[in-house]
């Protein structure tokens, strides 16, 4: 960038010196554990004893015949992709409703975004009072409407959907903010020109708004997806992975394999898998959305 002068530090030297603290931290606390994780995943270590033996790829072979892992993998996909889908829909709808000024706009934006900055674990506890079987607030409404009480979190498949919905409601505010910023960046004259050409609201939405929002969609999709696939606290506070192991995410499964089953080797194998999976998904989604973005320009 700058012309070389005698006695002036080279670009690479500046990069190295200024980023050194960050790089050291990343090596010691990200790279080393990743490598150690791979190493542990090749053993039968129980997490505390001194001796263990290497058992090759046994832990990885076990993954795909282990109903617990397969269930957690399936759930993680529902938590990640399900929440992302609904967060995108809700986020766009909320953004459209709340972009222009009216009396309740500020309050609505504040309330919708508020839970996004509360710990996932706490959000789960907040919802606990809603979805409890006995005296839960939702069952009060169900009974008032003449229905029979529902055991919201008592059945695995239903609980997975409920957790996904809680996650959606909780984080759709983040998507909303990104979409409002996206909407604000669309020049008014596009709509004016379309109106002159006689395009109705619906046509304007699909012809102008959506294509212009694609960069915002890329951003928010990646954010929501990575967040959803990493889900941990919410599962712990709502169901703890139960009933049985039916609502575990990959993250909460790792935790219980390590703490409850004391199977650190296998837990590490699930960890390595989770890491590789999330990386691969992010790269593919980024590549796909970048292509869309380029096509929309």
């Amino acid at each position: 960038m700058f012309k070389k002068k005698a006695g002036v530090a080279s670009d690479n030297q500046v990069v190295l010196v200024m980023t050194l603290p960050a790089v050291l931290l990343m090596i010691v606390f990200v790279a080393v554990p990743l490598v150690m994780g791979v190493q542990i995943s090749l053993t039968n270590w129980n997490g505390y004893s001194q001796d263990f033996t290497y058992n090759g790829l046994a832990n990885y072979k076990k993954l795909f015949s282990d109903p617990m892992f397969l269930r957690a993998f399936r759930n993680t996909i529902i938590y990640g992709f399900g929440s992302t889908l609904f967060q995108t829909i809700l986020g766009v709808l909320y953004a459209l409703l709340l972009q222009r000024a009216f009396a309740l706009r500020g309050l609505a934006r504040t309330i919708i975004y508020l839970p996004a900055m509360i710990a996932q674990l706490l959000v789960g506890y907040v919802w606990y009072f809603m979805v409890q079987y006995n005296r839960g607030a939702l069952n009060d409404i169900v009974m008032m409407l003449g229905g029979t009480k529902l055991d919201w979190l008592g059945v695995g498949d239903r609980a997975v959907i409920i957790i996904m919905i809680i996650n959606t409601l909780n984080f759709c505010g983040k998507a909303m903010i990104i979409y409002i910023a996206g909407l604000n960046s669309i020049p008014d004259m596009y709509y004016e020109a379309a109106s002159v050409d006689g395009a109705n609201g619906w046509q304007q939405f699909w012809g102008i708004t959506m294509p212009q929002l694609i960069p915002a969609i890329t951003t928010s999709t990646l954010l929501n997806l990575i967040g959803g696939l990493k889900m941990f606290g919410l599962v712990i506070s709502t169901t703890g992975g139960g009933p049985g192991y039916s609502t575990h995410s990959l993250s909460s499964l790792i935790n219980s394999l390590y703490f409850s089953y004391q199977d650190a080797g296998y837990a590490s194998a699930v960890g390595v898998f989770t890491f590789v999976f999330i990386m691969a998904v992010s790269i593919v989604i980024r590549w796909y959305l970048a292509k869309k973005e380029a096509a929309a320009q």
């Binding site: 696939l229 990493k230 989770t274 999330i278």
Partner: peptide
């Protein structure tokens, strides 16, 4: 993108 739980055992 690293999920904290995936490295917590070695960490």
């Amino acid at each position: 993108m690293v999920p904290p739980l995936s490295v917590l055992v070695p960490l």
